[in-house]
Structures are given as C-alpha cells and as structure tokens.
Amino acid sequence: MDELTTVRAWDAGRPGPSEEARTAARARLEAAMARESEGAAPGAGRLSRRIVLRTAFAGLTAAAAGAVVVALDDEGDRAPRLEAVSAAEVLRRAADRSRAAGSDLPVPRDDQYFYTRTYVTQVPVKGGPTRTWNDESWMSVDGSKPSLRQEHGKVHHDPPLGKHEVRWPPTVYSKLQKMPTDPDELLAMFRGNAGAPADDVMAFFEGCMLLMGPRVMPPGLQAGTFEALSKLPHIKLDYHDADVAGREAVGVSHPKASFTFLFDRRTYDYLGLRTEGSSPKKINGEWKQVDHYYETRTLKDIQVVDRIGQHG
C-alpha cells in the first residue's frame, strides 16, 4: 500500500473535514511549498513528495483530532515533525511535566512570604500600543501578616486575613495543602460538587483562578488541576500562540470562558494565562465595558523569603 492510499484510508468512515478546515489545511500546504521553494537551490524542481504528503496529512489530522502541535526534531528548525494531540492530551502531558519538574522551593514556614514576579502584557483587541508591567508581590504564607501586592504596577497593601475570612482561591499555603490532588475530587470541587454539565464552564474558570494568582502550589496540586480540567468536554486547542516572552506556545481554552492556558510546545511546561478583559466607562449615564484587550500573565520568578522587599 503506497502513502497516498494510506492517507485516504486513514480514519475512513468518519465525517470529512469541514470547508473551514480544508481551507486552513490548503493554506498551510501552500505556505510550506513557498518556504521550501525559497530555500531550494535554483533548478531544484518541485516540492518533494514527502513534504507535500506530510503537510497534507497534517491538515487531515487537524480536522479530525482538533489541532496539531508542531515540535522540532534533532535535525533542527528545518525538520518539523507534526504530532496530533487533543486539548485533553496537552493538559495530561502538562500534568506529567509538572510532576516530573517538582519544585526546588523549600516547604515554607508560616512566618515567611512568597515572593513572585509576574510579567504582564495587555494588547488592545482593536489595535494600539501594548502595555507591559513587571508586577512583584510578597504574600504572607499563613495570611497572619500584611502582604504587598502589585497589580498593573499599582501597589496594594493587603491587611492580614481575619480569623473567619474565607477567600477563594485560597492564598494561605496550609489551606492549599488541604485541597485534594486527585483529579476527580478536584473536578467535583471546581463544579461545586454538583457535577452537572452546566457547571463545566465554572469548573474551567475555577481551575484558572486557582493557578492565576501569586501563590505557590503544594506538590501535586497543579498537576491534579490540569488532569481535572482535561476531563471537561468542549475544551479546545489553539496552536498558533505565543506567551509574553515570545516563546511559541500551545493554548488550551473553553469556548465559553475568557481564559486560555499557555504551555510550551516542546516541553509542555506551564507558561501562564491569557485572558480577555475590558475597562468600565460611564457613557450617557450608564456603565459599559469598553477598551477590550487580551492580557497575558507569565510567572517569571518565585521564591520563599523572610520579609517584604527581599528577592530571595
């Protein structure tokens, strides 16, 4: 059986790709052909059959599996290999990566602080200058001391947490330690223990919020969160993405949520979150949301320190 017969027989019996998917695959094929022609020597002739088949197969895979993650093999940037994965698989691989990476931070004492430095960008949806911030925060480990937190460059002095104060997601390390790391238990918690499909969007939102703030995850909690969210239906993959440092990334989102997880394409390291936001403005006596933007947050540094102002 030759290669073309293999491609035609692949996934036979399933509905074919949509016209939108065909158009996208055709565009990728033409782009690959153009790149190959630019790099070929004069008189080298047409694009090789191997390259054409590889690109065509990528288009079919994207239509059937949801997306294609592009990685690079040992031959360098000019030798891409295409690997079909789903959004759920990316989250599971991110969970495996999180467990393997572990943490080199010591278990914090209650009287210490978590120092974090987060790089934030805001890109206006309708165009305009990009705004950036390097936000630093010192969060009390047990919440018994005042904390200092930056949001978009503005300094906030947070008072100690009250004895009966409930904050979600928790920032106190001991409360995070009490959270389950089992994916099914976490998913039930994110859904509010109702488990109804209507709560899937809320579950995705809760998982994003847990990983968004300036906090340290106890062992297994980040990985468990990724695995819990991988069980949700309708999550999708955005493979033309980049984090705020310009690294190529793959995004995982929910069509009804405004958050997107960003992961490194090669290692599946968690890079940060992108959100869709807007600013309130009073127009004709009514408050409306205007100036829509995309905001990306990437954690650049995290340390356990003894006092506010210390950087580790």
Rank of each mutant, 00 (worst) to 15 (best):
T6Q: 13
A9T: 05
A9D: 11
E19Q: 12
R26N: 07
E30K: 02
E30V: 11
A32K: 11
A32C: 12
A41K: 13
P42M: 10
A44Q: 06
R46D: 15
I51D: 05
V52Y: 00
V52H: 00
T55H: 12
L60S: 12
T61I: 07
T61N: 13
A64T: 12
A64W: 11
A64N: 10
A67W: 05
A67G: 15
V68F: 07
L72K: 01
D73P: 03
E75T: 10
D77N: 06
D77E: 13
P80H: 06
L82Q: 07
L82V: 09
A84V: 09
S86I: 09
V90P: 04
R92Y: 06
R93K: 12
L105V: 05
L105Y: 05
P106G: 04
Q112E: 15
F114G: 00
R117W: 03
T118M: 07
T118L: 01
T118K: 03
V120N: 06
G127R: 08
G128N: 09
P129Y: 03
T130H: 03
D135A: 05
E136D: 09
E136K: 07
S144P: 11
K145R: 15
S147H: 05
S147M: 05
R149S: 08
R149N: 09
Q150Y: 04
G153Y: 05
V155Y: 07
P159V: 09
V166D: 04
V166L: 07
W168Y: 08
V172S: 02
P180T: 10
P180K: 07
M189I: 11
R191P: 05
A198G: 13
F204L: 07
F205R: 13
E206L: 11
G207S: 09
C208R: 03
M209P: 02
L211T: 09
Q222H: 06
T225K: 04
F226T: 02
H234P: 02
I235Q: 01
K236E: 15
K236H: 09
D241S: 14
A242L: 09
D243V: 02
V244S: 10
R247I: 08
V250E: 11
V250T: 14
K256N: 02
F259D: 09
L262D: 10
F263D: 05
R266N: 14
Y270C: 08
L273Q: 03
T275I: 13
S278A: 15
S279F: 10
K281H: 11
K282R: 15
G285R: 08
E286H: 13
W287L: 11
Q289N: 14
E295N: 03
D301A: 15
I302A: 02
V305R: 02
D306M: 00
D306P: 00
I308Y: 00
G309S: 01
H311S: 03
